[in-house]
Nucleic acid binder design. Structure first.
Lengths: 190, 190
DNA sequence: GTCTATAGTGCGATAGAC
DNA sequence: GTCTATCGCACTATAGAC
């Protein structure tokens, strides 16, 4: 779970100033949505002016893309780690527990951002996104392309990502949530 | 599944013109997000001007609220139907299959709208939302308030809502998706 | 790398004619 | 109920001083 600079990752190296902006956007996007977050909000969050933000990124779209790729990179690291496993069963367990960790770690953040219409639009023709998704699909489903496997896998991923921000679990602490999620996810996998 | 004017529902009666605006917003919000959808887009979608839209709703917020309440009303109808069941097991099955129907019927629409930060903010102090949620919780969990039951229920609801718009199932037809979803959801319930 | 200042655009919302 | 026209404002983005 340490920070990994995965081989297949193409995210350009980010300066410290750029990372601060990405962090601010990461905090504001889930609360207001991507479209509802202005550069003024990001600048205010960092205690600087809009012009200082524009010195790091030429457009708002570049910031959105950087945030999306940063989140995608976290998922890619989990997938890459699982691909290195010795058996398929062990790989499946690694990817599920990695995604549980990711989801619990960010709770509201990750899922909200990745499901924002603007981000979805950015990923619609993003080759790295398709690459990670097909590797994830291969890890979880193997060569089974039947309706059963696809619905089952989609439900599993949606259940993990969506449950962490559900009102029913807001007052559970991270450890309890992580343990229950992993246990139920493994049971669902069968 | 017919249109139901549920007893507990407080949504004000809507004129035909208002319903057309709600329909346009319902189509545009998932694609651009609530903040990313302007009144100009809604007006263009209907072939009228902004002023005509403002004649039906005084503010954009009123339109957003109307859309949110319309979606909530669909869920409330499912909950009310299940509450009328003779046994608890039958009620649970009714609520799960009702939510599956809802999710498949709208695919991208409902979940995207209900998870939009602006809508979430509107529901944050919306008494009807809390009422429907607690009734849903009672139907699915009974008096069990343990971490296991809460995580399990949150996963079930998130799995159904989230799976319908997952890339893995985009090319499945509605009937197949509905059948598989219901079967797997019942299996997960145990 | 940060600032002030500003250009240009689209937004939500209103007034008043038909 | 829809229109044209407009107001005031916040937005993205840029120019140029420090």
């Amino acid at each position: 779970m340490a920070s990994v600079n995965a081989v297949g990752s193409k995210s350009p190296a980010r300066s410290a100033a750029q990372l601060r902006i990405i962090g601010a956007a990461l905090a504001l996007f889930p609360e207001h949505g991507v479209s509802g977050t202005s550069l003024q909000m990001i600048a205010d969050h960092l205690g600087v002016t809009k012009a200082a933000v524009y010195h790091q990124f030429n457009t708002k779209d570049e910031i959105v893309l950087a945030v999306a790729e940063a989140e995608l990179a976290r998922l890619e690291a989990v997938v890459a780690g699982a691909e290195a496993a010795s058996t398929q069963a062990r790989a499946r367990l690694l990817v599920v527990s990695g995604i549980v960790d990711l989801a619990v770690d960010s709770r509201r953040t990750t899922t909200t951002i990745l499901s924002d219409p603007v981000i979805v639009g950015f990923f619609a023709d993003h080759h790295t996104f398709f690459d990670v998704m097909s590797r994830l699909r291969r890890l979880l489903m193997g060569d089974d392309v039947g309706a059963d496997a696809r619905v089952r896998t989609a439900m599993l991923l949606a259940a993990i990502s969506g449950a962490v921000m559900h009102p029913f679990v807001v007052d559970l602490d991270d450890d309890t949530l992580r343990t229950e999620l992993l246990r139920l996810a493994r049971r669902f996998l069968g």
